[in-house]
């Protein structure tokens, strides 16, 4: 066995490496946000976020990315609402109506975990072929369907985790008072209310940031969609397209658009953290 001195040195070196890697990992977040802030801020203007693209926008002339911002908000809101309406009853069914640890509930949870891991490009490819089959062109509707499918697993799994944290006593007391299972479910939902909003925000964040799913399904347009069957621009796609332009002006707008998206995401994250803290207090 090596001497104590050597062993203690090893301890110090190992600790140094751990600190370094922790620093690198957390630093990468600040680095990414910092890079985008640094590059995007000079190009960010009120005109950028309040106007539609005008003629020649993509060769560096006037206009803004309002079409993409609103398009993304429409799409993500609609998809999140649908995913919530579909997802919450499913997680209630899994925890309240099914017996704890039954085969069906375990299998379903496993499948939702797997679905959560399926990349959005696969959802996009499938959404695209469904649309071709039914003769729907690339549109807001196609994007909404794809993103809804993508976000259902997030809602189901997060709400399910939340329902697990509810004390079993609460359920037993409610049930012993003669409540039906649906009434039990309502009590449980009330208990995890802040947490449910966290789940919804998580889904919204994923929905608004996704590119691969909408790339194939929702198309792109300089106008705001008036109807659900019209193509709609989305913010991540706008960033992607503008960045691939050779014109510096347009690239600059890509950085500014990235900054807008970053700000939206950071706001969502802050709300999530706030609600999660509230849920924690709720538990006490």
């Amino acid at each position: 066995m090596a001497s104590v001195k050597v062993r203690l040195w090893k301890e110090r070196i190992a600790k140094g490496f751990m600190l370094l890697s922790g620093f690198l990992v957390t630093g990468s977040l600040f680095f990414i946000v910092g890079t985008i802030l640094y590059k995007g801020l000079p190009y960010l203007s009120w005109e950028m976020v309040s106007q539609l693209p005008k003629g020649g926008f993509y060769i560096g002339k006037e206009g803004g990315i309002l079409n993409a911002i609103l398009g993304s908000l429409y799409l993500a809101s609609a998809a999140t609402i649908l995913a919530t309406i579909i997802g919450i009853p499913i997680s209630i069914f899994l925890t309240v109506y099914l017996k704890q640890g039954s085969f069906l509930s375990r299998l379903s949870k496993l499948i939702y975990d797997i679905l959560y891991g399926i990349p959005s490009i696969v959802y996009g490819a499938i959404g695209f072929s469904i649309m071709v089959y039914f003769g729907i062109r690339a549109s807001l509707l196609g994007g909404i369907i794809t993103i809804t499918l993508l976000t259902i697993p997030i809602v189901v799994r997060t709400v399910d985790e939340l329902l697990k944290t509810v004390p079993a006593d609460l359920r037993h007391v409610t049930q012993s008072l003669g409540a039906t299972r649906w009434e039990v479910a309502k009590v449980l939902l009330l208990f995890i209310k802040p947490g449910v909003f966290t789940a919804i925000l998580l889904a919204f964040g994923r929905a608004i940031g996704d590119v691969a799913g909408v790339l194939l399904t929702s198309g792109f347009s300089d106008n705001l969609p008036k109807y659900i069957d019209e193509p709609a621009a989305t913010l991540p796609l706008a960033i992607f397209f503008q960045l691939s332009s050779p014109i510096p002006e347009v690239q600059g707008r890509a950085y500014a658009s990235a900054l807008v998206l970053t700000i939206i995401i950071l706001i969502i994250v802050l709300c999530t953290q706030y609600l999660a803290a509230k849920q924690k207090k709720h538990k006490m």
């Binding site: 680095f31 890079t35 608004i208 940031g209 996704d210 991540p236 950085y255 998206l261 970053t262 995401i265």
Partner: peptide, 11 residues
Amino acid sequence: AALPPVLYGVW
């Protein structure tokens, strides 16, 4: 984890 992929791409 919440940052969208496209932002990683821009970075």
